[in-house]
Simulated assay, not measured.
Amino acid sequence: AKSEAFPSDLSPHLLGHSGPVNSNITNVPHASPENGHIAPQEHLQNLPLQGQLAPTAEVKMTLFHWQVQREAQRIERVSPELLNMQDADGDTCLHIAVAQGRRPLAYVLATKMAQCGSLDMKEHNGQTALQIAAATNQQFIVHDLLAHGAQINTRDVWGRSPLHVCAEKGHFSSLQSIWRTLMGTGQPIDIEMFNYDGLTPLHAAVLSHNAVVKDMRSLENICSFMAKELEQRTQKYVECIKTLLLMGASCGTKDLKSGRTCLHMASEEANVELLNIFLDQPSSLYVINVKTFSGNTALHIVSSLQNHKTQVEAVKLLMRKGADPGSRNFENDLPSQLVPEGPVGLKVRQILKGKYFHA
């Protein structure tokens, strides 16, 4: 077995690993007395380290520095061939260390693998160590890997970059770590990269936010705990969306399958929170009447919804921001012709005619 060829103290088995690295891991170990990462106080003195982590003379070493020193000593004589060896699932020791949240070990392994040009090795799902760190929301390991030269514009087998992964899962702390680490470094970030579903990271975050909003609307008599949990999930996606916009993502980019912008996607759930964010962007005047491949504007989509509590509010918002009720889709339909019957539909039609009122 491949794992038998790993150094005895670095084998996947002894790292606690069996089977492929799970990108959905959320509970990873952190430094604590229980898992053996706390150093005795007498060892927290100034010890020589290579590179940017070397502390200045007469300064006590931090816990993390001491942990890095210890891991560096453990694998000092391990050859590059063994460090780069992959198990049956394509995982290197670095993939496993990252998945388990072992930051000091991951730091040392990343240093060595960067020196031999193998930092971006991929496992069986095409994921680099950086993508594993993003998937498990380990912002500090994300920073370490990027600082060692890990590439941000890699794709896994689904065409997702680390930005897509953060956006899909609502991992805004890792997304912000990517932004802070790479800002000003000159390393280009392909913020508009499409995955194999034709979606940018911003599209992915909007659709994930929509899904939680839909769950909140469909659950009746929801308990306060569940309501709070869902609300927290929506806010994680909001933070991802705001971060992506600050990084330069465009809310006017169309997905490759249907030509929807983020505004169209938010309109599909009458997602007022996201509509407000996108319509406050400087580019909103140029985006609000953009059409999908079938000729529908965001106003067409919102107007056609049925049984949405926020439909009236969403239509009002779009109209106030300059949506054109006279725009026709490729079926020659006006937004008003798509409105369903009923009391809510009556209110929507009145708004589309320019009759604003408080409802």
Rank of each mutant, 00 (worst) to 15 (best):
M226R: 14
D280K: 15
S11I: 07
P48M: 02
K254F: 10
R74Y: 00
E268C: 09
S267I: 03
G295W: 01
P20Q: 10
M183F: 12
L352V: 02
L63F: 02
R103C: 04
V142Y: 09
G345I: 01
E4L: 14
F64K: 03
T62R: 01
Q73K: 14
I38M: 13
L338G: 07
A57W: 00
Y237H: 15
H209Q: 11
K214T: 06
V287G: 01
V108D: 05
V212R: 08
S294Y: 04
I178R: 10
H43L: 14
P325K: 10
P282T: 11
G259W: 04
W66T: 00
F330G: 00
E269I: 01
Q50R: 11
E231N: 14
V315A: 11
S283T: 14
G159S: 08
I189P: 03
T200N: 08
I178D: 08
N210I: 06
H65N: 13
V302T: 14
D197C: 08
E268R: 12
Q337A: 12
H148S: 12
T200E: 03
Q131V: 05
E313K: 15
S161A: 11
P282I: 11
V339L: 08
Q232D: 14
V339E: 06
V78Y: 07
Q73L: 14
N35C: 12
H264C: 08
H203I: 03
L318M: 09
V290R: 07
H264G: 10
L175M: 15
S267T: 07
G51M: 02
K321V: 00
N195I: 04
K2Q: 07
P40C: 02
L82C: 01
N153Q: 06
S173P: 00
N332W: 03
D280C: 14
K316M: 09
S18M: 03
A147F: 00
V339G: 10
T310N: 12
A205L: 06
Q50G: 04
Q232G: 07
L246C: 12
A150F: 04
M121K: 12
G16N: 07
N153E: 03
P335K: 01
T297V: 01
L246K: 15
V212P: 07
Q176M: 13
A133R: 11
K228W: 06
V213E: 11
V28N: 06
E341N: 13
T185K: 10
H17V: 01
I189F: 04
S177R: 09
V165M: 13
M193H: 11
V78Q: 06
L130W: 09
D144T: 07
W179V: 07
A359E: 09
V272K: 00
P104H: 04
R74H: 08
I222G: 02
I141Q: 04
M121H: 01
D215P: 00
A266S: 15
T26F: 08
H164F: 12
I132Q: 09
I277V: 15
L317G: 10
L44C: 05
D91N: 15
L334H: 05
N84A: 12
I75H: 00
N289T: 03
Q176A: 08
S283E: 15
L94P: 06
G186Y: 05
H300Q: 04
A359R: 01
N137D: 15
G322R: 06
N307G: 10
K321Q: 11
H17R: 13
A205V: 05
F278Q: 08
N296I: 00
G326H: 07
Y237I: 04
N271Y: 05
L338W: 02
E76G: 13
V78F: 05
